[in-house]
Design a protein around this nucleic acid. Sequence first.
DNA 1: GTCTCGAATCGAAGCGCTTCGACAACCTAT
DNA 2: ATAGGTTGTCGAAGCGCTTCGATTCGAGAC
Lengths: 370, 370
Amino acid sequence: MDTIPVWSYCQATPISPFRICAASKRFSPLESWMVTLAEVAQHAGVSASTVSYVLSGKRSISAATRERVEQSIRELGYHPNAGARALASSRSNIIALMVPLRTDMYVPVMMEIAIAVATTARTHGYDVLLLTGEEGPDAVRRVTGSGLAEAMILMDVELDDERLPLLRGTDQPSVLIGLPTSTSGLTCVDLDFAATGALCAEHLAMLGHRDIAVIGEAPAVYERHTGFAERTLDGLRSRSRELGLRVLHRPCEGGYDAMALTLARIFDERPATTGFVVQNESAVEPLLALLRQQGRAVPEDVSVLAVCPDQVAVQASVRLTSVAIPAQEMGRRAVELLVAKLDGRGTEEVVLLAPELTVRASTGPAPAAP
Amino acid sequence: MDTIPVWSYCQATPISPFRICAASKRFSPLESWMVTLAEVAQHAGVSASTVSYVLSGKRSISAATRERVEQSIRELGYHPNAGARALASSRSNIIALMVPLRTDMYVPVMMEIAIAVATTARTHGYDVLLLTGEEGPDAVRRVTGSGLAEAMILMDVELDDERLPLLRGTDQPSVLIGLPTSTSGLTCVDLDFAATGALCAEHLAMLGHRDIAVIGEAPAVYERHTGFAERTLDGLRSRSRELGLRVLHRPCEGGYDAMALTLARIFDERPATTGFVVQNESAVEPLLALLRQQGRAVPEDVSVLAVCPDQVAVQASVRLTSVAIPAQEMGRRAVELLVAKLDGRGTEEVVLLAPELTVRASTGPAPAAP
DNA sequence: GTCTCGAATCGAAGCGCTTCGACAACCTAT
DNA sequence: ATAGGTTGTCGAAGCGCTTCGATTCGAGAC
């Protein structure tokens, strides 16, 4: 729809010899030889600064002028040059998003967060630069140092993340998705995993279960002290203690073979186990299949409670009672907090989203003791 | 091959006397402690242009000078300003990656591609801007127009994608991951899905199967004419014809309920079906479970052949014979083609990766006809 | 000893935009 | 009328970097 009548401004605006020569070399009307602010200004018969103010709205402009300028912008197909803008204003309108390089867990959640970040950022006029964890702390230095991005969002935060000192040491706004051990001077968004764990314990306790098992993420996830995994466990354990539940925690790689081993060990050690909490998407289906195979009915004999996105819960072979992971919400909130900081409103703050448990078909009253 | 960015050495941002005097001249609010080229030049006792040439290597510099400059860069913790660079050189060193907004299919593959793109891009000195499909063609216009990104990679290309005319009409390099109907003037990377389909047909035919069923992606995927789904089907169908296989194709939403319905219909219409080709990650596990439940053994009674990443194939309840989707390779190749174009080498080109079938435990000889 | 050429360096002119101070032109209130 | 505010617009000074001559200085070539 942006038809660009090249001729109209070729005739009208001999700005510089450079321009003329470039324009005459030009072929297709769609081609992006950049139209500049100055050209728009000349076309509209105003000064460059006026056009700039029309664009930014930082000074009042008469309706007539504004209209004329906007018309010219449309006619010429003008797009402000991002580099020039960034240079002159020290604002790049880009925020960096650092996603984990590893794909040993929860890829769909990561993706959903990333997409939510990107779309929310756009509604606030920002673009998103995608950084992988590969570069590690250097990426933070590079991006802050070069002014490429004016703020950043970090995912997959470890409890004692090595990027945090850098973040604290810079005046560049940032938001973490995840919750490190110390949050002083930081802004964080996350599901309240401790409350999530507690909620799981409560639900199972309420149903009369006494022995429960937690099927966690892969051991590696715990070894590098990923916050959410440990926090879920802590919350679940401490609430369990209060409620008199016995808890067994077993990390699990996911997949059938690993799950089979894990499950065998669990029933070996605690034959009376009747409740499962699973926080590993790739372990859900294997668990259900193995239970079925062993003749344990869900939810009559054992209950299974998952911590996973709703979509996974409803697509499983048994519709799972679950605590949802609100990936989109997390991405959205992170951007909003960041934008608030960039606008000067907004503060250091920790936002913990309250967990919500949805009862579906995988949990029920504990069976009467044999 | 690529110049190594000197500034990546520096560990911190030490304070220098020069900064103080320069800073007092300046009142940029946010980046008031940015070290500039000029400051490095002054510190090293050379002119700004010399520093620039040290950085870019575009003119010869004596070893002594080079060293002095690099020393200063390190001491001052200098990072070139991205905006200024982009403005002066018209090269932003950013490539845009447009990912699909929808998450109705193959999220892990998308994520893997995205990460491969990001890491490969970094090795060539580029950063990646994350665009979602939400903005549609406008995003292309915005990004090319503003010079924000100097090139772009598009994922989730439809057969007759509305972004293609824009791409053809601009001189901005681009690479598609996927294969539209017409590729003239475009560079594309994709798995050769037609060959993939053919390969599946061959494998099952070789094993003696006569009636096969294809469990495809959700109907919506076909309705919007996503290339890979249709091409797989075409390849499979035409090779099947040659081999005398009868083919039934049923799209499927994924999940247990949808799969149960689909499967029932298939056996209704073609009771003699003994081979399945699945191209829908979320349908794999349901299919296996249902077959098991119906007393059909895999691979003795029916064979199941998947088109999916290897990781999915080995984690399933039966180790699946599969044609791999080489997500990483695709991302990597896309970037390499793009960089080649940006460097002036490289041409329009269609790269189709040859499919590779790995035999695992889910396919075997067709059972003797009853 | 002069001439030429290449290597090494510098100075200056932008790149396209934002922003600040200046200034007309018009309003009110005196 | 005049002082004092608005309002709308302009000119010019950068932002930090790249790049294109121009310049200097030795080292051969003659």
